[in-house]
Amino acid sequence: MAITFQLNGKKQTLEVEAEMPLLWALRDVVGLTGTKYGCGMALCGACTVHVNGEPVRACVTPVATVAGKNITTIEAAVETKLGKVVREAWIEAQVPQCGYCQSGQIMSATALLSKNKKPTDADIDTAMAGNICRCGTYNAIRAAIKDAAQKLA
């Protein structure tokens, strides 16, 4: 079926199965591969995108449910004013190792910072709880979020 939504600020119409997860619609149909697959069960956060500004696990989100909504993926999220600050903070803290989880980490972090200008450690713990990093970059992630918050203040 044809499903239309806003993708990174542009209208996108896809001819896909209604129950195909948004993740695979983005990766295999649109060809945007910045959003990653890690578990397919909303357990790792690698696939995090923003749906109307909220962080959502694209791997368990049937594409039909986002019809008419605003989807932002990593490719566009790091180009906003806030996103650029976060991206630079990530480089400053030298966060990525293998890098595979980092799209999802950054999507969770930008969602947090867009609502909470001064996240506490506990806020960061909660916002990032759904994102696994197998390389163990967690302390660098925390430092980068705090650094970005400071720069955005």
């Binding site: 945007l32 591969t33 910045g34 959003t35 990653k36 697959y37 993926t73 990593i74 490719e75 790091v78 991206r87 990530w90 480089i91 030298q94 966060v95 990525p96 890098g99 595979y100 980092q102 799209s103 950054i106």
Partner: peptide
Amino acid sequence: DSAVKVNGSAMFGM
């Protein structure tokens, strides 16, 4: 390889 790993452009096998 930091820059390509913070904007989704790094190409993994996947």
